[in-house]
């Protein structure tokens, strides 16, 4: 039967009904109108998603007087423009920014590295019972942190880090940050393990077997084959974890007591509380605090999206 079809006949395969052509043309015209509606909807959504940021940004450049007189999404009126809130916000948040960087960078790297190791041991090295261990890791992704907060503060009271670190004064001075690093690493491992595992289970088993036959030990295979191939997933994990840790408030709230150890989310919350009516300062502060993650997001949006999707 196929042989009777003329070569190059339309794939639709219907038997040349003329009404078919007309409805097709109609459909094409309808498609044009529909495309316009589609883009209108997409642009409206852009407005919806960006409006808090846009009005925030505009407000941050307005004087106190100006933002009460103008609509929030309008640019600053003549004479109402100022960059003063930015300087003040930066000034008030600078300690927080430094502390957040001291926290987020090591915590991100450590949790990614440990996640990579765990995922390799639970995926590419083949042994019975690994699924049971893995299940505990995966479940860890979904634990509400409230369920561990009280023991966590208790734990860090009992483990007296400042006196343990008293031999290293620079570290002892940042004991709060170190507590926070350990905490974030521990609670970050489940998600990083899940992300790495999804990637490692796609590695070619025959390739890893070939490496074993080539005489490489389990560790050497990790070091020379798996780790060098993990670049893309490291990027995803690092970016995702960095934003998570940078953005967190809860752990800092219960673990940080020394004002010198304040991370930026804490500092920003304090700023909001103390400057109730100064919306321009609040907005500038929000942008200053969000700048690192915004930058990471704009530069590595793809990886961030992959990390976000990997959570499920």
């Amino acid at each position: 039967m196929a042989a009777t079809d003329a070569p190059g006949a339309p794939a639709s395969g219907s038997d040349g009904d003329p009404t078919d052509d007309r409805s097709f043309a109609d459909r094409l015209r309808a498609t044009g109108a529909r495309r316009i509606a589609l883009y209108a909807a997409l642009v409206a959504l852009v407005a919806f998603y960006l409006s808090p940021l846009e009005s925030g940004l505009m407000t941050a450049f307005k004087t106190q007087d100006a933002f009460f007189r103008t609509t929030p999404f309008a640019p600053p009126p003549p004479g109402g423009f100022t960059v003063e809130p930015w300087f003040e916000a930066f000034d008030r948040l600078s300690t927080g920014l430094i502390n957040s960087a001291l926290l987020a960078v090591p915590a991100t790297v450590l949790s990614a590295l440990l996640g990579s190791l765990a995922a390799y041991g639970l995926t590419n090295v083949d042994w019975r019972g690994q699924i049971a261990v893995l299940l505990l890791f995966v479940a860890g992704v979904f634990i509400p942190y409230q369920a561990v907060l009280v023991p966590l503060t208790r734990f860090w009271t009992i483990v007296d880090l400042p006196s343990l670190l008293s031999a290293f004064p620079p570290l002892a001075a940042k004991a709060g940050i170190i507590e926070l690093i350990v905490t974030h690493v521990a609670y970050g491992i489940p998600i990083t393990t899940v992300l790495f595992r999804a990637f490692y289970s796609t590695l070619d088993d025959e390739m890893l077997e070939a490496a074993r036959l080539d005489g490489a030990s389990t560790f050497r295979i990790y070091r020379r084959i798996v780790l060098p191939l993990s670049g893309p997933i490291f990027a995803v994990t690092l970016i995702y974890q960095f934003t998570q840790i940078w953005n967190d408030l809860l752990f800092a709230l219960v673990l940080i007591s020394d004002p010198n150890d304040q991370v930026v989310t804490l500092a920003l919350n304090t700023l909001k509380g103390s400057m109730v009516q100064q919306y321009n300062l609040q907005m500038a502060g929000a942008f200053v605090a969000a700048l690192p993650t915004l930058l990471v997001y704009v530069l590595f949006g793809e990886q961030f999206a992959e990390g976000v999707a990997g959570e499920s």
Partner: peptide, 19 residues
């Protein structure tokens, strides 16, 4: 263990190290 058997294997997928 495989590495002490003095054998070499060619795989169907070739299993080359891509990096």
């Amino acid at each position: 263990p495989p590495k002490d058997r003095d054998i070499a294997m060619v795989f169907q997928s070739y299993a080359l190290y891509p990096h």
